[in-house]
Simulated assay, not measured.
Amino acid sequence: MMAGIARPNRGTIDVNGRVSALIELGAGFHPEISGRENVYINGIILGLTKKEISARFDEIVRFAELEDFIDQPVKTYSSGMFMRLGFSVAINVNPDILLVDEVLSVGDASFVPKCLDKINEFKRLGKTIVFVSHDLETVTRICDEAVWMRKGHIVMKGYPKQIVDAYLQDVSEREEKKQRLRRQEIEEKIEEKASSPEQEEGERHRWGDMSVEILRVTLRDGKGNEKFIFHPEDSLTVEMEILAREEKEDFGFGIAVINGAGVTTYGTNTFLEEMKPLLLPAGNHKVSLTLPSVPLINGFYFIDAAVHSRDGAPYDYHHLLHQFRVDSLHKDVGHVRLDHSWSFGDGLRFKPQG
C-alpha cells in the first residue's frame, strides 16, 4: 500500500516524497527482454525521464556488477542477479522513501554488504527506509525503530534490540509449548512402543527387558525448570526417573546427544567413566547428568537415555525420544562451538562490526 500497488479498504496512507520499492524478486521486470531495456522501463515506472535514466545508467549497471550481462534477457539471470539489478535501480532513482521487503535474503554474499552500506548512506542523508525482514541481526544493526507484526496487527514497536529480544522470547515460549505437547504425545505412546516387539528393529524407539524401566526423562535448566530450548551458555541437566523391578548389582546409565542428521555429538555412560556399580535397590530412583554448558551449533538435538548391564544388554533404552533445541547467536558450522580466540600480527586489520 505504501508503494501504491494495493489500496487500503479503509483508512488512509499519507506518503510524502518519491517512493522506490524493492518488494518482490523480479517485480517490474519483463523476463523476455534485456537487462538494459528493463532498467529503462523500471526507471520510467519510478518516475524518471529517459534522459535521467541514461545519465544514471552506467552507475546502475556498475553498482549491480552486471556489465557482462546487461544485454542478456533477464530470464537468464539468477535470483542474485535479479536482486542486484532491482536494488541498483531502486536506489539510483534518488527516492525519498525506500521500501525493501525481504529481497536481500537472496543476495550474493559479496553484494549484500554493499546494499547495507547504501542503506546506511540513505540514513545519513535523512531519507526514510522501510525495511521488512526476518534477518533480526540486520534489523538490529540498521534500523532506528522496529515494528513487530503478527497477522497484520502490530504486536509491539520501539527500540530494535528491545523488539527483537521480545520477539525471540515469544518464539521461544511458543516453541516450548510445542515441545511440551510433543512430550505428552511421547509419554502416551512410550508404553505402546515398549510393548510392540513385532516392530522392525529400525522402527523401534524403545527396547529392553524392562527389569529396570526409565519412567520419565526431563531436561532442566540451571534453575531446575523443565526446558526444551537452551543457549550455549546455559547448563542442561538430563534427569531420569527410573523404576527397578528387582534389585540389581550389574547396572549402568548412559546418555547420548544426537544432532538432526543422526550424528552422535557426545555420549557417555557410567561404565566409560569407570564408575563401579554396587547396588540398585528395587523401587523408584532418580539419576541426573548435568552439562555446565551446551556448546553446540544452532539446531535441534535428541537425547538417547539408557540403563543397561556392563556388557551393554539394555534394561530400557530410549532412542530419539527426547528432543531439545539450541539457539545461538553464533554462526559457526560443524557440530560444536569450541572455545577460541583470534590474534593477528601488526598491520592486519578488520572492519569493525555494526
Rank of each mutant, 00 (worst) to 15 (best):
P281Y: 04
A282V: 07
L279S: 13
G260H: 11
L272Q: 13
M275E: 07
A282L: 03
K276C: 06
T270N: 04
N259P: 10
F251I: 02
P281I: 04
A261K: 14
V257N: 05
F251S: 00
G252L: 00
P277W: 10
T264Y: 01
T264S: 13
P277L: 11
T265A: 07
G260C: 05
E273V: 05
I255P: 02
T270G: 05
G262R: 11
E273D: 13
M275A: 11
L278Q: 12
A282K: 15
A256V: 11
L280E: 03
M275W: 15
E273R: 12
G252A: 06
N259L: 09
A282Q: 14
K276E: 15
L278D: 11
F251V: 05
T268R: 06
L279R: 08
M275R: 13
L279T: 12
M275L: 11
T265G: 09
L280R: 05
A256Y: 07
I258D: 05
E273I: 02
A261Q: 14
G254N: 04
T270L: 07
P281E: 10
G252P: 00
Y266L: 11
G260R: 15
V263R: 11
Y266N: 11
N269S: 02
T268K: 02
G262F: 07
T268C: 08
F253L: 02
M275N: 04
M275V: 14
I258T: 15
F271V: 08
F271T: 09
Y266E: 08
G254K: 04
A261H: 13
T264F: 01
G262L: 10
A256D: 14
G260I: 07
F251K: 00
K276T: 15
V257E: 02
T270E: 05
N259W: 10
G267A: 12
G252Y: 01
N269Q: 02
Y266W: 15
E273A: 04
K276M: 09
I258W: 07
L272S: 08
A282T: 13
F271D: 03
A261R: 12
G262V: 10
P277N: 12
F271P: 05
L278K: 14
L272W: 14
T268P: 02
